[in-house]
Amino acid sequence: MNTILKVVRYELRNVVRNRWVIAYALFFLVLTTLLLRLGGSTPRALLSLLNVVVLFIPLVTIVFGTIYWHGSREFTELLLAQPVRRDALFHGLFAGLVLPLSAAFMAGVTLPLLLYGGVARDSLPLLLLMLVAGVALTAVFGALATLIAGIVDDRLRALGVALGTWGLMTLAWDGFILWVTMTFADRPLEQPLLVLTFLNPVDLARVLLILRLDVSAMMGYTGAVFARFLGGWLGTAMAVAGLALWALIPGLFALRAFRRRDL
């Protein structure tokens, strides 16, 4: 535990990386400020943040994460010649990736809101859920980046795989869902769609958020099924657990790879 904290501390001191993280925080800061200026803090105004959370966080995290792990090679080598456990180093490095990104996202979103003077009351649950979803997606895509960097040695190839993974989860999977809904339009689709949603962390986060907005009302019966499942606290907890699983499973595989890795 002690070692993990030490590793996190070294990573936080890393100036070059911090520049990226600060830019990332500034991005959210500017974006949120603009949104507040334009639309206030109503749930509808927060909607534009949703696209960013669902699209941008995964992209930045997986790309940054892959570069991060490759950039940590020297550090890893140096520390593993010392009396440091591999898994401790791994946890430290993982935290050093996910914590700053999550903090940058949260600070970038919440600071303008605080300066603006709080949020509209009916936006609060949505906002909290959005923060949770953003952090969860950061963890998920941080874990995926870790796994990719642990399996693919070549830096450029790893970046390619990372981008491909992102495209698969944000675009291809949704294309597949669209195809399924249109192909099996005449059958009951609620449960299959729920399963398909849980199979993709991006969709899970997105659906969790849009259900708090307009969609459950617009979807009629299907919406009711979804809203009943994901709109309640149990469903929300399950979705968050699903996201946690999506971070945990690639993370564990990455840890296994990291343990067996020859440096």
């Binding site: 689709l189 769609l193 969709d203 997105r206 617009m218 979807m219 299907t222």
Partner: peptide, 21 residues
Amino acid sequence: LVVEQTPPALILLRSPVVDLL
């Protein structure tokens, strides 16, 4: 139009795929 024919497709609302479409 897709949603008109298949309302469950609405869960894809605000997916980038839909913007692409």
